[in-house]
């Protein structure tokens, strides 16, 4: 893998990447490198000239008011938006050193996993939910599946709660457990990246805390990008925070910097609750 030249990239795209050039320069290629990204739903432009870098094995949070484009960007990372007719992407996204659009979508989505806002377990047993992604891959042998299911459920801090009812319907467990099941399901195929689209917005504070805890546990395993409306959550879990407004990336910085001393007035207004 070629070393990643941040300076050159910054110059090429005239962007303010929110990574310390001094410390992160020697990193390998970052997880995502987004350059001049525009996104359209029909005639409506949802993302305008986005430039950003998502570093490896860190947690990055996207915040901003509803409709600001943060979820759209997240869904561009695993090309989920392609399933919506009438959408269009301009610009480039690299996954590591490869073009994101050079992968078949089904291959890409095994590298870039996703958890949605509403817990959406399949109407199958708990075990079959986690095994679903594993069984899609003929290279994974049958006798490996059970072990990987257990491992994933442990990583999602759910194993102890469900180990006695693995073969019961996944719809029978609580909403918080269902969301952790969805995380386990996504982790089972060992993705490089986990995208989370407001994963806690439908959950009570206790379930939310459990999910935040498990994010800490798994961030050594994969890069995490999380969209959230909850600023405290962004402050708690994220290393980097991006603030979006009207389809533009207003500011991208270390979490501490964003919440304590934002550079932009709009960021300041948003995090202090003056609008949005």
């Amino acid at each position: 893998m070629k070393p990643f030249d941040l300076r050159q990239l910054s110059k090429a795209h005239e962007v303010r990447f929110a990574v310390d050039v001094e410390t992160d320069e020697k990193l390998p290629w970052p997880q995502f490198t987004v350059a001049d990204l525009n996104f359209f739903y029909g005639a409506h432009q949802a993302l305008k000239g986005i430039n950003l870098i998502v570093p490896n094995k860190r947690v990055m949070a996207f915040i901003g008011p509803s409709g600001c484009g943060k979820t759209t960007l997240l869904r561009t990372f695993n090309r989920m938006n392609e399933t919506i007719p009438g959408t269009r992407v301009e610009g480039s996204i690299r996954l590591g050193d490869k073009d994101l659009f050079s992968f078949p979508a089904t291959t890409l989505r095994r590298v870039v996993g996703m958890v949605f806002q509403k817990p959406s377990p399949f109407p199958k047993s708990i075990f079959d939910n986690v095994a679903y992604g594993l069984r899609l891959d003929p290279a994974i042998r049958r006798n490996e599946v059970a072990d990987k299911v257990e491992q994933s459920l442990r990583r999602a801090a759910l194993w102890d709660e469900v180990k006695d009812k693995l073969h019961q319907s996944a719809n029978g467990i609580s909403g918080g457990q269902q969301q952790r099941l969805c995380i386990a399901r996504a982790l089972a195929v060992e993705p490089e990246v986990l995208l989370l689209d407001e994963p806690c917005s439908a959950l009570d504070p206790l379930s939310t805390a459990k999910i935040e805890d498990l994010l800490f546990e798994i961030k050594d395993l994969c890069t995490i990008v999380i969209v959230t409306h909850n600023m405290l959550q962004a402050a708690r879990v994220a290393d980097y925070v991006g603030f979006f407004l009207n389809g533009e990336l207003i500011e991208l910085n270390r979490a501490k910097q964003i919440f304590q001393n934002p550079e932009m007035q709009q960021t300041q207004d948003y995090i202090t609750g003056r609008f949005g």
């Binding site: 989920m80 992604g133 899609l136």
Partner: peptide, 23 residues
Amino acid sequence: SLREGGLALGASKSETIFTIVIP
């Protein structure tokens, strides 16, 4: 959400339809 759940795990459209949506 169920269809997207399947697609997000790397299932193709027809795999999602026949293993998730129809069941």
